[in-house]
Simulated scan of single mutants.
Amino acid sequence: MHHLDVPYEHVESAGAFPLGRWLSDQRQAYRAGTMAGERAAELEEPGIVWDTADAAFEQNLAAARASYELHGTLAAPRGATILDIAIGQHLTNFHRPGGLGKDPDRARRRAAALAAPIDPDCNPRGLGWTVDRQRHYAYLPQLLAEGARLTAVVPGVTRHGEDIGRWLTTQRRNWEQLNEEQQRRLATLGAK
Rank of each mutant, 00 (worst) to 15 (best):
E38S: 15
T34L: 11
R166Q: 11
A40T: 08
G99T: 05
Y137M: 14
A138R: 04
R106G: 05
R96A: 12
A80T: 00
M35V: 04
D119M: 05
A16D: 04
G15A: 13
R31D: 06
D25C: 14
L150C: 08
A40N: 04
D119R: 05
Q142H: 11
F17R: 13
A53R: 10
A138Y: 06
M1S: 06
A115E: 05
D119Y: 06
T130H: 09
L140W: 02
A56W: 04
F57W: 05
I118Q: 02
A145V: 01
A64W: 01
G98L: 15
R110Q: 05
R159K: 12
E58F: 12
D54L: 15
G33K: 09
P7Q: 12
A112V: 10
R159G: 01
D132C: 12
A86G: 06
R31I: 01
D84P: 00
P117V: 08
F94M: 08
Y139L: 14
A113F: 11
R78C: 07
L83Y: 06
G101E: 01
L23S: 01
W175N: 02
G161K: 09
H3I: 13
E44N: 12
D84N: 13
A80M: 13
A40Q: 07
E69A: 15
L83C: 10
G79N: 08
Q89T: 11
A138K: 02
V6W: 06
T158E: 04
N60V: 03
Y137Q: 08
G128M: 13
P124Q: 07
G161A: 13
D54H: 07
R78P: 01
H160T: 05
E45H: 14
I87M: 07
W129M: 04
L4A: 05
D121C: 14
T73E: 01
R135T: 02
G37E: 06
